[in-house]
Simulated scan of single mutants.
Amino acid sequence: MRRFILTLSLAASALGATALPAAAEVRFLAFDAADRTTQALTRGVTLEVERGWFGATTVKNLFSSTSRGSARFVSGGPDQVRRVLPKDAAEGGIYAIAPEGDGRALGRALCPGSDESWIVVGRVRAGRPLTLQAVGRWADGQFRRCVALNYVYRGEWSTQPGAGPARDAPAAYGPN
């Protein structure tokens, strides 16, 4: 009986491991700047969001909605990022802005003079406003809050077959 339970449990684990990648859903959600500060820095953005089990979301990439710029995000960051934010803004996922491509320029625009930069992304949901908090680390090792970017939901992009963020900019997609 023990052997049967062990075999059943291993089979269930293997089945679950193969089902996980298929459960992820990638969406491209567009947002417009909600205030003057946000408009001056980014205007509008499209986020590539991966939604997994139980509705958990991960932001993979950011695309400029008004130009050809894009930046890749890497999930995670030091706890000091949250510590410099106001209490109501510290909720959400921390993402490092990857320095390759346009990421370095985005980091410099959001946190001028910083060596590294992160964003804390509130809950990303279609139809809802979104706030991104930018935090930087300077050469002296200090973490500082740089800016809050506020957006209103604009819509969702649909991808063409075979299209992807590495090959095409969001401008190649059509809104739903």
Rank of each mutant, 00 (worst) to 15 (best):
L6M: 04
L6Y: 04
T7G: 15
A12Y: 10
A12G: 08
S13C: 15
A14K: 06
L15S: 14
G16W: 09
A17P: 00
T18Y: 04
T18A: 05
T18Q: 04
A19F: 07
P21M: 06
A22W: 06
E25Y: 03
V26Y: 01
V26L: 05
R27F: 05
F28T: 01
F28W: 15
L29Y: 06
A30Y: 02
F31G: 02
A33D: 06
A34C: 07
A34N: 10
R36G: 09
R36E: 14
T37Q: 06
T38H: 03
A40T: 13
L41D: 01
T42Y: 01
G44Q: 01
T46P: 00
L47T: 02
E48D: 09
V49F: 01
E50A: 13
G52W: 10
G52P: 08
W53D: 12
W53Y: 08
F54N: 13
G55K: 10
A56N: 11
A56G: 07
T57G: 05
T58A: 07
T58G: 02
T58D: 09
V59K: 03
K60N: 15
K60W: 05
N61C: 04
L62M: 08
L62Y: 00
F63L: 06
F63W: 13
S65W: 00
S65D: 15
S65V: 01
S65T: 15
S67A: 14
G69P: 00
G69D: 14
S70H: 12
F73Y: 13
F73K: 04
S75P: 06
S75K: 11
S75E: 11
S75M: 12
G77I: 06
P78A: 10
D79F: 08
V81L: 04
V81M: 03
R83T: 12
R83E: 15
R83N: 12
V84I: 13
V84R: 09
V84K: 07
P86F: 08
P86H: 11
D88I: 02
A89N: 08
A90W: 05
G92P: 10
G92E: 10
G92I: 11
G93H: 01
Y95F: 14
A98K: 09
P99A: 10
E100F: 13
G101M: 09
G101R: 14
G101F: 08
G101T: 04
D102K: 04
D102T: 09
D102W: 05
G103E: 12
R104M: 08
R104L: 11
A105E: 14
R108Q: 15
R108T: 13
A109Q: 14
A109P: 06
C111G: 12
P112R: 03
P112V: 08
G113R: 08
S114W: 01
S114M: 05
D115Y: 07
E116F: 01
E116W: 00
S117W: 00
S117K: 02
W118K: 01
W118H: 03
I119G: 01
I119W: 02
V120F: 02
V121G: 01
G122H: 07
R123N: 09
R123Y: 06
V124K: 01
R125F: 07
R125M: 11
R125L: 13
R125Q: 14
R125I: 06
A126K: 13
G127K: 08
R128E: 15
R128Y: 04
P129C: 09
P129H: 07
P129L: 09
P129E: 07
L132R: 07
L132E: 11
Q133C: 04
A134C: 10
A134Y: 05
A134P: 03
V135I: 15
V135D: 06
R137Y: 04
R137W: 01
W138R: 11
